[in-house]
Amino acid sequence: MNSDYNIAPLGDHSIIIEWEQQMDPVIHQRVMSVFYHLQSLQLPYIRDLIPAYASLTIVYQPSLTPRLKQQTASQEIQVMLKKMLEQITTSATAPPRILRIPVCYDPSLALDIQSMAEQKGLSVDRIIELHTQQPYTVYMLGFLPGFPYMGKVDDQLATPRLKKPRLKVPAGSVGIAGSQTGIYSMTSPGGWNIIGQTPIRMFDPHKASPCFCNPGDQVQFTPVSLEAFHKMI
C-alpha cells in the first residue's frame, strides 16, 4: 500500500491512521481494506475500529496488549500497523452491498427542498434527479447511532449546513451538508438541509444488527410518492 498515510496516537488508548484528507472512493477503499483486515485478525486487545472518510481509528485496551519490544502498548500497535500497511498490497475488500433506499421528496417532508431549489435556480424535480442519479458510498457512520455519511453529491447540490440548526429533525430525514448526504437515523437536533425522508428505519435497537447501513455500503436512493411513503411506514 502507498506510504501516503500517517499513524499517530489519538490519546492513550486509540491510534489513528490518516490518509490524504479527501472525500474519495479510492482512498476510502484503502481505509476499508485495513478495516476488514484488522477485523479478520480478531486481536483481543482491539476494542473498536472506526473507519471514516480518510482515516481509521483503532481503539485498544492497553492492559491487554502484549508488549514484545516496545515500551508502551501504543508504540507496539503502531509498529504492528506500519508493518501491516506495508504488506497489504491490494485494496481487496468485501464486495460492497448495494442498498436501495426509498425517499419521498414531497415538500411536506423535504423541509428545505424548495428553498434549495430557489437558491440554486433548479427545479425540485431536477434536485430529485440529481440526488438519485448515482449511488453513494457510505464513508462512515457517526453523529448518531446508524447515521450514514455519504457522498459525493453532484456539485450543483452541495449546500452548506443551515445557519441555525433545527431543534428537531424527524427520524428518516435525508439531508445535505456540503457535498455530503446523510440520513437522520433518529429524531434529533440537526443542521443538514432536509430534502426528503425515507420510511426505512435506519436504526432499531431491538434488531440483531441495529443499523441499516454499514460503512463501505453503496446506497442508491429511489424516489417514492407521498402515498407510497405512508404505505411503507
Partner: peptide, 28 residues
Amino acid sequence: LSAGVSKGTIQLLPNGQLIILMADHQTT
C-alpha cells in the same frame, strides 16, 4: 474531514474554546 475521536479528546471549537469528550461522546 470528520474522523474517529476518543474519550478524553480535547477539541478546539470554532470560538476558540475547548471541549473534552466524555463517556457518551459521538464516535466521530
